[in-house]
Simulated assay, not measured.
Amino acid sequence: MKQKQIDLIHSLSDYQLKQQLLLSQFILFTLSLIASLFLFDSFKDWLDLFKWQPTQFILYGVLPGIIVILIDLFLMYNLPKKLYDDGGINEKIFKNRTVTEIFIISLVVAISEEMLFRGVIHTIFGYFFASILFALVHIRYLSKPVLLISILLLSFYLGYMYEITNNLFVTIIAHFIIDFFLALIIRFKK
């Protein structure tokens, strides 16, 4: 199944890949909005998960995001490349993108995934379930132990930041910073 996914992604043009990626994120975003209407007492209760607290953004969003990037960079440069290879999918997604496109993709992914996994699933079904499900959705990492452990730890880490703050802006910021800077590394690496 993984090889089929890799082959399919490599057969897509850059434009088609970007369209598919954005479509999948639109679906996650839509699911989170629909689920919030049915699973929360009111839509306002769900909107209350977005809190404007700049100190939290820095302490629990920006700093954890930077820590994850530094750990990831350490592992990328100290482990054999084959352990970090996702079949070239991330490279295919980001290698030929402009910085603006990478920014937009990273922001869309962070918002849609955090709204669904932390905002709805974590809030309603709990920390553990949301963290495991988040990792499972990243199916291309399941056959790579280092990538699987990384995504599991990241998922639990983001979930923990959400547990501490109960603020979706925090996890969106952390998720965005991680995706954006790691995508830039992919884009500009030689």
Rank of each mutant, 00 (worst) to 15 (best):
I102C: 00
I102V: 13
I102H: 11
I102T: 11
I102N: 07
F103W: 08
I104L: 15
I104Y: 14
I104K: 00
I105H: 10
I105T: 07
S106I: 10
S106G: 02
L107S: 00
L107Y: 06
V108A: 02
V109Y: 11
V109S: 03
V109T: 11
A110R: 07
A110F: 05
A110H: 06
I111N: 02
I111R: 03
I111Q: 03
I111C: 08
I111T: 12
I111K: 04
I111M: 06
S112C: 06
E113I: 12
E113Y: 00
E114W: 04
E114I: 10
M115V: 04
M115Y: 13
M115Q: 00
M115F: 14
M115C: 07
L116P: 05
F117H: 01
F117Y: 09
R118H: 02
R118D: 02
R118K: 08
G119Q: 03
V120Y: 11
I121L: 11
I121K: 08
H122D: 04
H122F: 13
T123P: 04
T123G: 08
I124Y: 03
I124L: 04
Y127T: 15
Y127G: 11
F128W: 14
A130F: 05
A130E: 02
A130G: 07
S131D: 09
S131K: 01
I132S: 08
I132F: 12
L133E: 08
F134Q: 05
A135Q: 13
A135N: 13
L136D: 08
L136Q: 10
H138L: 00
H138Y: 01
I139A: 13
I139V: 15
R140M: 12
R140N: 15
R140K: 14
Y141A: 09
Y141P: 11
Y141F: 12
L142Q: 11
S143F: 14
K144T: 12
K144F: 00
V146S: 00
L147H: 10
L148Q: 08
I149S: 08
I151S: 05
L152V: 05
